[in-house]
């Protein structure tokens, strides 16, 4: 096997413009992410129109940089993979339009990748051998889902959040505590110095057998109420303890539902994916809780937990091998789901 199959991945679903070159769906030759964080800070959140404008300004240089860092040219590529949903429609359209134009002008096959599925493939960049069927927990700012993955592109949703996504709740609590955006990393850090037992927040485990859905709005409301009451007392907020107790509640729910899914389906491997997969407490508790269940727990490297194009290129490699190519009438699908990838 001389030649590696090289895929250029393009990802613009939210506020990061990313491009990457990946060999054989595993070897990351380059991984370029241009963050827009500073552009949105003054508005206190991501502004879709501004995100779209910024994507258009940087996408071509980002692609050039990904090629240069990988030490390859367009002529070395075997295909182009692009995120077509879910996400912000204006942002997605910039990536999709660029990818189609490149595919056409270079006569390269085009692959359309579901962003959420892309997150799963971040685990293929660990060097570990991934074998189906397996269970995957996707946790991010927009999604919280437990999946039964039976093969490439064969997904069954076991459970999903009925209200807020876990990452979204981290952001909201961080904002209420004045910790800035994104909230996950700061809360994770402060929680390490706090004692979770000082407060007690609801777990929302929703007993019914086989039901693997999540709910985080109860935790959110309880924590927000607590913060308000603490503030009313006029004393400095017990930041560390609040963070620890809140994080415990969210992580508990994620870990417990994951364990139930593993007990029920008894897979060999369990994958963690999405931005919240970077959370140290979640990683630790999952490994601890799943260890007796004889399941191998795999996490993506930290840099591939957040949005990136390497995971899109990795997913694209398997689609390309299967011959599932996109046509040029490909559109952005902002509401794309996991049920029908």
């Amino acid at each position: 096997m001389g030649h590696k199959t090289l895929i250029l991945g393009i990802e613009t679903s939210c506020d990061d413009t990313a491009a990457s070159v990946v060999g054989n769906g595993r070897d990351v030759l380059s991984n370029v992410v241009s963050s827009q964080e500073s552009f949105h800070q003054r508005f206190g959140g991501i502004v879709p129109e501004i995100a779209s404008r910024r994507h258009l300004e940087v996408i071509n240089p980002v692609i050039d940089e990904a090629l240069a860092k990988a030490g390859v040219t367009f002529a070395d590529l075997d295909g182009i993979a692009v995120t077509y949903g879910p996400g912000l429609v204006g942002s997605l359209l910039v990536g999709v339009s660029a990818a189609k134009a490149l595919s056409f002008s270079l006569d390269l096959p085009l692959v359309a990748v579901n962003h959420l599925e892309g997150h799963i493939y971040a685990n293929f960049l660990t060097g570990a051998t991934i074998a189906f069927p397996l269970i995957c927990l996707i946790v991010s700012g927009g999604h919280t889902s437990l999946l039964h993955v039976k093969g490439h592109g064969q997904l069954e949703v076991l459970g999903r959040t009925r209200d807020d996504a876990a990452g979204e709740v981290f952001d909201k609590i961080a904002r209420a505590l004045g910790l800035g955006f994104p909230g996950g990393p700061v809360i994770d850090q402060l929680a390490q110095q706090g004692e979770g037992e000082k407060f007690s927040f609801p777990r929302a485990l929703m007993g019914t057998e086989g039901k693997l859905d999540f709910s985080f709005s109860g935790v959110k409301t309880a924590v927000l109420n607590r913060i308000r009451r603490e503030k009313e007392q006029g004393k400095p907020l017990p930041l560390n303890d609040l963070c620890a107790a809140f994080q415990d509640a969210v992580v508990d729910a994620l870990v417990e539902k994951s364990a139930r899914a593993v007990e029920y389906l008894q897979p060999r491997q369990f994958l963690l994916a999405g931005g919240v997969a970077a959370n140290g407490e979640l990683r630790k508790r999952l490994r601890f809780r799943l260890a007796p269940l004889e399941v191998e727990v795999i996490y993506p490297p930290l840099e591939y937990c957040t949005d990136n194009a390497a995971m899109i290129a990795a997913a694209g490699y398997y689609y390309l091998r299967q011959g599932s190519l996109a046509s040029y009438d490909l559109n952005a699908e902002p509401g794309l789901d996991l049920e029908n990838p």
């Binding site: 990536g95 339009s97 660029a98």
Partner: peptide, 19 residues
């Protein structure tokens, strides 16, 4: 249309980059 502008320009720039 803002979106229309970007579809055309992203395509043109992609063609320019590829060709």
């Amino acid at each position: 249309s803002f979106t229309g502008i970007r579809i055309g320009m992203a395509t043109a720039l992609g063609l320019s980059q590829g060709l």
